[in-house]
Design a protein around this nucleic acid. Sequence first.
DNA 1: TATGTACGGGCCATTACATCA
DNA 2: GCTGATGTAATGGCCCGTACA
Length: 293
Amino acid sequence: MEGGIAFESLLQNQNLGFSSEGFDSPWVSNSFHGEKANTKKPVSEKEYNSDEEYENCFRQPEKKRRLSADQVQCLEKCFKEENKLEPERKLQLAKELDLQPRQVAIWFQNRRARCKTKQLEKDYEILNSGYDKLKLDFDCLQKHNDKLKQEVQMLKEKLQQREIGEKDSVPNEIPSKELELESNGQEISNLNPVSFQTWNTKPKMVICKQEYANSVSTKSDIIDSYSPDGHYSPFLEPCDSSNVFENQSDFSQDEEDNLTILRCPKIEYESYIDPNEGSLGYPINDQPFWLWP
DNA sequence: TATGTACGGGCCATTACATCA
DNA sequence: GCTGATGTAATGGCCCGTACA
């Protein structure tokens, strides 16, 4: 930029009228005198080198012409190499293509703008498809969540019925084996094979996302119900587990971010999923969300 | 050294015009 | 031939960085 003014002005003065003759407004754009648009001056303030130059100001501007295919091709090629122009390169290009340096600069400017617009469109599409996928996942999760809620409710009711029945028949007996529920899951499946199967084979994503259990900090009464030996026992301490699913939004962002598998039941079945791994064999946190099943 | 000014150039919004269906 | 849509060359305003007095 520096030092380029005199040379460029000279060059532009030589081409004054740029393949067109004359100007299209009473304002003398610096397109023709140093290329600075915002330093334009009214005609009356401008000094002209000759009468001819002065008259050029009042001629009808030549109709705007599109650049030829060759010119555009060459400009495109340069743009691919570098999308901004060095002053020297601009002059060189202008000379090669028989254009005003200003035209070359404008072409690059417009080209950058088009490029940016396209990029924005691409970005928008990517974001949009990501959103759609997330929405789909969310809907699936919500449905599954509802289903699980129903199951929990059903199990609670069953349990209550059993408790009542056992109280009536054997008042002081230790809770039945079914209620001791060792964490190997077999008892659980005895209790309600169908439910357990559903639970244990639910989609991996659900396991990963929903069962946020970090066994220490948890909002789930179920997760609190580990026996001293670490075995999971949701029914060891009767509690109101209905709140587990009551308010999904209650999960803190940290917990949502730190997706871990639920440690309950202590799964020793073939469908056990390593808490620290996602379905792809690396930490869930490292998996892009669109890879979730 | 700090400051004001001029200038070049980039970006953005907009206009003007060419081209096409 | 007219017309609306679209693409693109060009304009004008604003801002920023740099050189220089």
